[in-house]
Amino acid sequence: MQLRHTMAQTMRTFFYDQGFWEVDSPIRIPSPAPELHIVAEPSGKEFLRTSPELHMKRMLAAGAEAIFQLSPCFRAHENGSRHRPEFMMLEWYRLHADYMTILQDMQTLVAKAFDAINPLISTNTKNKPDAWAAPLDVSTPWAVHTIRDIYLERAGWDPVSNFDPDRFDLDMVNIIEPSLPTDRCSILIDYPVPVAALARRKHDDPRVAERWELYAGGLEIANAFSELIDPKEQRQRFQDTLQRKKEINETVYALDEPFLQALEYGIPPCAGVALGFDRLLMALTGTPYIKDVLPFPHE
């Protein structure tokens, strides 16, 4: 509890100091963002949100410049030693920024969180020395690997010029993720467009999208985009994803028309990130089990 409080306080202070607004948005929504492998939990005729992303972008369209939200999100069927179907997500967005600006934010925020959490670890964990590994080394610069290079080097193929979704996911879980150091922060960057539903294409290579993921402590911690703001391309990508969801017999949601209208009205270039609050705490305290950082681990 003390660790969670300290981390939330550190995060809020970081954003308040830079003039971010703390926002809230509906938890029960009619149209979750369509993502092929994320399943929303039904709630009456609507759904529990899988992320506050679409509503936060509508706030940007309405004039907000820098916003953050720390709140629960829900993803059906995701339950394991590192997953809970209900978890805390920190999301933040900036106007006139791209994913590299967000990476700067992330490096500063993780360092601040480390400084706040680290002195508490020994007092909070002295009763269970076995479960806790060495503390995370958060010093910058973090290792940055493009998806193309790391797959070529470690899996022997190029997912950018020749995308194969099944092979991509299996190699990610079996080869790429286990090869990343657990005691350092690593960034995977520039994903093939088919696995970057809401990210903008790169100017100099339209086959890849401006997306990065932060890995630390053997965990995927955060996902960032330079946001896609072209309403036509966004509608097309949503429809393609919903079509594929239909093909694999997943629930298909209605398109979020107010969000697409907001894009048509116009949003300046912007970027944002979603960070798993519980997961960052796991990495900072060196535990592989999400239950170790939850106040009610068995509910």
Partner: peptide, 8 residues
């Protein structure tokens, strides 16, 4: 249970 970011 494992799930690569946004993957299956």
């Amino acid at each position: 249970f494992m799930k690569p970011g946004k993957g299956q």
